[in-house]
Design a protein around this nucleic acid. Structure first.
Lengths: 213, 213
DNA sequence: CAAATCAAACTGGACGGTCCAGTCTAGTTT
DNA sequence: AAACTAGACTGGACCGTCCAGTTTGATTTG
C-alpha cells in the first residue's frame, strides 16, 4: 500500500487518465496526442518519454482498463460453493454481474475495443477472456458443485453457463452497445432482470426440470 | 424490377460498394476518400458529384447496409401464425435468425456502428430498430398468438421475446464482436444452438411450465 | 541547518514529413 | 450536353522529433 508516488508515476498516471478519457470518447484515430498532452497538463515530449508511440499508449490504456475491470469482477463475486440453494447463488451472481458490468466506463471500453477489433485483435481476445469468458468459467465451476448436489441437471456445464450468462446480460449489453450510455439499465431494474433470468434458467436446468425428447 | 441501370446509377453503386468495403474494414476515420475513389475505379471528383461529403457518403453506406439487412430478415422469416406447435416455429425462427445474422458482413457492420455510436448515435438507433428490436417485435406478435392457443404462458410478451432472442443470439453475437469473423458460429452448429434455446425457453414459458414462487 | 549542487524530469514551442478532405481546371467519353 | 477522368492544389491536422531552457527533489557541502 504505497500511497506515496514519485513524480514520474504521478505524471504517468495523468497521461494514462487523459488518454483513457479521450480514447474512450473519440476512438484510436479520433484522439490526438496533442490533445492527450493538453488534457494531462503535460508537454508532448513528456508523453513520448513515457510511451514511445500512440499505439503503445493505446495498448497500455486499454489493457489497463481491461485488467481493472477483470479484477473488480474477480474480487466482488462471492465464491460459489456453500450450502445455500442454487437459486440464491444465481440471483446474487446475476445482480452483481449486472451492476458491475453495466457502467458507462465499461460499456465505452467495450465499444472502443469492438470498433478496433480489426486493428487490434488481441484487445478483443483479452476483453473476451477477462470479461464474459471469466464469468462463464466461474459459473461452470459453481455448476459442477450444484450438479453433485442434485440441484442442477446438465450435460454440458459450460454451455449451460453461457446460456445463463447471456440470459442475464444479452439484452442489457446489446442495448447499451447500440443505444449509448443513456440506455444503460438502471440499478433498480437489475433485480427483476436477474430474478426472471434465474426463473427461466432453473425451469430448464433445475432439479425438477422436465427433459423433453 | 428494372435491371437496366443508367450510367449514373452504375457509378453510384460502384462508389457505394467500394465505400462499404473500406468503411467496414477501416472505420470512418480509417477510410480515405482517395482510396474509395481508387477502389471504385472512379475519379475523386465523381465521388463528390454523387456525395457532397465523406460524412454523407458514410451515412448513405451504413443506412443502406442496415436497411438491406433488415429487409432480408423481413422477407425470410416465415409468418408465425398457423397451427403448427410453438416448438417448431421457434426452432425455425432461431435457425433462420442465426444463419441470417451471423455473417461476416453483418458482424462487421455491427462492429462499425458500435464503434461510431459516439459520433453517429442515430446509426446505432437505426441498427437497433431494424435488427434486434424488429426480431423481438415479430416474436412478440407470434407469442400473442400462441398464448391464445394456450401453448405459452407469459405476462410480458415483449420481455419473453427478448429473453428468447438473446438466449439464441447472445453468445454467438458477442463472441463474434470481440473475437472477429473467425469466431462466427459455423452453420452446422446453428441447429443445436437453436434447439437448446428452444428447450430452455419452453421449459420456462411452455404450456406445462411450473411457475415457481 | 542552510546553501550549493546535480541529475532526472519536464516545458514550450517549432518543425519535418505525411496524410487527407475537399476544390479546381482542363480534357475525354458516351 | 451530361457525365466522367486525371491530377494538381489548398489548407489544415497530426505523429513524432528536436532543442534550449526550467523545475523538482534529493544529496552534498560549508
Amino acid at each position: 500500500m504505497t500511497v506515496a508516488k514519485t513524480r514520474q508515476e504521478r505524471t504517468r498516471d495523468a497521461i494514462l487518465d487523459a488518454a483513457a478519457a479521450l480514447f474512450l470518447r473519440n476512438g484510436f484515430l479520433g484522439a490526438s496526442m496533442d490533445e492527450i498532452a493538453a488534457v494531462a497538463d503535460v508537454s508532448k515530449q513528456t508523453v513520448y518519454a513515457h510511451f514511445h508511440s500512440k499505439e503503445a499508449l493505446f495498448l497500455d490504456v486499454v489493457r489497463g482498463l481491461t485488467g481493472v475491470a477483470g479484477d473488480v469482477h474477480q474480487e466482488q463475486v462471492t465464491e460459489p460453493l456453500d450450502d445455500r440453494p442454487i437459486a440464491d447463488y444465481l440471483q446474487e451472481f446475476a445482480e452483481l454481474q449486472l451492476t458491475i458490468v453495466m457502467t458507462p466506463k465499461l460499456m465505452q471500453l467495450r465499444r472502443l475495443v469492438i470498433g478496433e477489433v480489426e486493428r487490434f485483435p488481441e484487445l478483443g481476445k483479452a476483453l473476451h477472456a477477462l470479461g464474459p469468458q471469466r464469468s462463464i468459467n466461474r459459473l461452470s465451476r459453481a455448476f459442477a458443485h450444484y450438479r453433485k448436489l442434485g440441484q442442477l441437471e446438465a450435460d454440458d456445464l459450460e454451455a449451460a453457463a453461457s446460456f445463463f450468462n447471456w440470459l442475464v446480460m444479452g439484452g442489457p449489453v446489446n442495448d447499451a452497445m447500440l443505444l449509448g450510455d443513456a440506455a444503460i439499465m438502471p440499478a433498480e431494474a437489475c433485480r427483476g432482470q436477474a430474478a426472471e433470468s434465474v426463473r427461466i434458467f432453473l425451469a430448464a436446468f433445475g432439479p425438477r426440470a422436465k427433459h423433453q425428447a
